[in-house]
Design a protein around this nucleic acid. Structure first.
Length: 770
DNA sequence: CAGTGAGCGAGCTTCCGCTTGACTT
């Protein structure tokens, strides 16, 4: 017999709460949702008012069985899941699935995991809010209908195994639209003029400072004219303006801002951030990491204040509580913060330590005073020109929170950090040492990184803290989007300089366009996007989620009947799915590029069975059409006729070696050399269109030596067992399976008996696991 | 691992949100 059974969602949370409660309480966790819609036949009876058919998924059977047994012998069951739509639904599913008795069941909620909050919650129980549950059911059913009707449509019209959904399809759309914006972008060149000036320092020397011209010039001619005018000009201070500025700290972390800052400051992927945070959470070092709240418990604010006083003094303290402004926030938890504010660092792996420190600094900084700066702006008049120079200086008067934490930004900083300006008075003469007009180019819009995509999705209210990372994985798994680096290119920029009495012109090499870890749409991504946009405009609208969320809110307060809402959505949606199934053609992104000058046949590109291909000729022709796969980095949208024709220059016969032909071509796994019916992959730096016989032979010979070194040891009495050298070091290969060799053993000296023992040990281990 | 892209058909794929392991290379 158990007096009280408390059920929460997370086992780590259960452990913490158990510590706060007496022996008469048993705390268990449900591990999230315990039931879901069946996968067969949508899991919804469309004709019966959309009645959902819920089942317990295989991996949840065990938890449900255990909880059910415990509940049966408990006096009171406390459903303490999160206070949001999903949490309410979990409580309701538990109530139903565990066959709980209404009189012995209580629903409680708390936003922070402190002894006080939990006891207060226990004193104020309520019952399950059916309206809120209905809002969740409507959300779940709508997502299922959209996903399970659109995806099969894509299988028919584009390619099997594709997927579409309220969240993922819009995430892909953001990336596709950004790419097209970049394609249409034409850079504009301009000249930015900066000058180096000086004023006497009063001790016989000079104080230098930099200033920028108020105007930018469009052409080299205008810039040159301006510099010529400056030659005999006098420069005087026209105005000196001083303005105090204060900067406030950013709020503590939510899932989204943690992902962004960990990406910018630590170079973590969104997935990496979440798994490191998960480990910190499980070991009790931070609060829950999937949250949209910037709220801190009063306990946390109190201990942070104490800590700030101790380290920095009273001056640096300013306690604040932040309010959340992001769309659709449900605020079931606190912000992400250290569990113990007085611990500035923790033990653990290097990534764990770094992420923890980031969280500690951000949280502490959020409770510190503003930074005070003084900004000085000096305007300099030019006697022979109507424009003027502007110099700005910033002096930090009080560092405040900057002592601990400085938020990063996605935009690249062009300005060098501005320092102090020398003292100047109005009408004072300044000496011009040098003026430079440097050619610049407007830059294209930046592509999304994983983290900046999450930021955008949060702004649009699309997705939840628990789904940002999985969604980004999904759209990459479906190959709608790839994460890639792009090498920078070089360009020549003009530079015109006035120094002394002479104006000189030169060129400067400049690197641009380097991108790391950016998201690019694939051809399939664009085709699927265009297909959905054309036929399901409303679902693809950035406001779709926001609009349905409003309706879910109405359901949650009992103003709207959920089957009614779903019916209003479903009928026109389903009709559109049906009509699109019948009417629209297969969408393969086919595009005619022009004619092949040799044969006069049409050259086109499209998505083939194995990816994007170029094609010469047509299917009905007497002669079968010729096909060639597009290369990495090429896309249906941007490939030119010439680039497409070049693809047909492969395979190339580059010469002979050991009396056999050497052929270079490209296949399913990239470019290769073929010799004596064996294949040799080309290196990254080799161009299959350029490569000659010498390099081809080199590649062949390199691989042969590697092969020779591959076999470390073999046993005549057991031909299926070999000790080999692989990509990850030496290993044992036996019956197509690979086995590790412990570091303590020398692979070359392993006996057959030792190998057999290692294999047996590994096999018995893996059996135990399954 | 590697030159594919005809056409048919069986059987499979798929959503979003809540949560942790269990897998190895």
């Amino acid at each position: 017999m158990i007096e009280n059974l408390v059920i929460v969602e997370s086992p780590a949370k259960a452990k913490t709460i158990e510590r706060f409660l007496g022996e008469e309480y048993t705390v268990k966790s449900s591990f999230g949702h315990i039931r879901d819609l069946a996968k067969k036949n949508l899991g919804i009876d469309i004709d019966q008012e959309f009645t959902p058919r819920y089942i317990v998924p295989a991996d949840k059977k065990k938890v449900v069985k255990e909880l059910k047994e415990l509940a049966a012998k408990s006096g009171t069951v406390w459903l303490a899941t999160d206070e949001d739509r999903e949490g309410e639904a979990i409580a309701w599913h538990l109530y139903r699935e565990l066959d709980l008795d209404k009189d012995r069941t209580r629903r409680i909620v708390f936003h922070e995991i402190t002894r006080d909050a939990i006891h207060k919650a226990l004193e104020n129980p309520r019952f399950i809010d059916e309206d809120l549950v209905n809002a969740q059911q409507a959300r779940r059913i709508l997502d299922r209908l959209v996903g399970f009707e659109l995806s099969p449509l894509l299988w028919k019209k584009i390619k099997p195994s594709l997927s579409a959904g309220r969240v993922q399809s819009v995430a892909v759309k953001l990336i596709v639209e950004k790419e097209r914006e970049i394609q249409e972008f034409t850079p504009r060149k301009y000249f930015r003029v900066t000058g180096i000036f000086a004023v006497p320092d009063g001790k016989g020397g000079w104080n230098q400072f930099k200033a920028e011209l108020s105007k930018r010039f469009n052409t080299a001619g205008e810039a040159r004219n301006f510099l010529e005018n400056c030659k005999n000009s006098a420069f005087t201070v026209k105005a000196v303006e001083m303005k105090p500025i204060s900067k406030s700290p950013a709020p503590p972390f939510t899932t989204s801002t943690l992902q962004q800052e960990a990406s910018r400051k630590l170079g973590f992927s969104v997935n990496q951030t979440m798994s490191v945070a998960q480990r910190l959470y499980e070991s009790g070092k931070i609060t829950y990491m999937r949250t949209d709240s910037v709220n801190l418990s009063s306990l946390a604010i109190g201990t942070a204040a104490k800590r700030i006083r101790e380290i920095f003094g009273e001056n640096y303290l300013k306690s604040r509580n932040f309010t959340t402004r992001s769309k659709g926030a449900q605020e079931a938890h606190e912000a992400i913060r250290p569990a113990y504010m007085d611990q500035a660092s923790v033990e653990g792996t290097r990534p764990e330590q770094r992420l923890y420190e980031l969280i500690w600094k951000r949280t502490i900084a959020s409770q510190m005073s503003e930074a005070k700066l003084e900004k000085t702006t000096v305007t300099i008049k030019i006697s022979n020109a109507p424009e003027h120079f502007v110099a700005t200086g910033e002096v930090l008067k009080f560092d405040g929170f900057l002592k601990v934490y400085m938020e990063s930004s996605d935009e690249e900083q062009e300005e060098e950090t501005r320092g102090l300006l020398p003292e100047m008075k109005v009408n004072e003469k300044v000496t011009c040492e040098e003026i430079e007009a440097a050619e610049r180019s407007t830059s294209q819009p930046p592509r999304y990184t994983e983290a900046s995509l999450v930021k955008k999705m949060e702004e649009l209210g699309i997705g939840r803290p628990s789904t940002y990372a999985p969604t980004i994985s999904t759209i990459q798994q479906r190959e709608y989007v790839v994460r890639e680096d792009r090498q920078g290119k070089e360009r020549e920029m003009a530079r015109i300089v006035l120094k002394g009495d002479s104006v000189s012109e030169g060129k400067v090499q400049e690197k641009f366009g380097f991108e790391k870890g950016k998201l690019f749409p694939t051809d399939i991504g664009m085709i699927v996007n265009d297909f959905l946009e054309q036929n399901f405009t409303d679902i693809m609208n950035y406001n779709f989620t926001a609009t349905v969320e409003k309706e879910f809110d109405e359901i949650a307060v009992g103003k709207v009947d959920w089957p009614r809402m779903i019916r209003d959505f479903y009928d026109p949606f389903h009709a559109k799915v049906e009509s699109t199934t019948e009417q629209s053609d297969k969408s393969k992104g086919e595009k005619l590029l022009g004619k092949d000058s040799e044969t006069g046949k049409p050259v086109s590109v499209k998505i083939g069975r194995y990816g994007p291909i170029a094609q010469i000729g047509e299917a009905g022709d007497e002669e079968k059409p010729r096909f060639a796969s597009l290369r990495k980095g090429q896309s249906l949208e941007t490939i030119t006729l010439q680039e497409a024709l070049d693809l047909f220059r492969l395979p190339r016969n580059v010469g002979t070696y050991e009396n056999e032909e050497v052929v270079v071509s490209t296949g399913r796994y990239g470019p290769y050399v073929r010799h004596k019916s064996k294949f040799y992959s080309l290196g990254k730096e080799d161009d299959p269109y350029q490569i000659g016989i010498e390099r081809a032979i080199e590649i062949i010979e390199e691989k042969k030596t590697r092969e020779k070194n591959r076999i470390i040891n073999a046993f005549p009495e057991e031909p299926e067992l070999q000790v080999l050298n692989g990509r990850y070091g030496p290993y044992i290969s036996f019956k197509k399976k690979n086995y590790r060799i412990p570091k303590s053993k020398n692979p070359a000296e392993l006996t057959l008996e030792e190998c057999r023992q290692l294999i047996e040990k590994a096999d018995s281990r893996s059996k135990k696991g399954t």
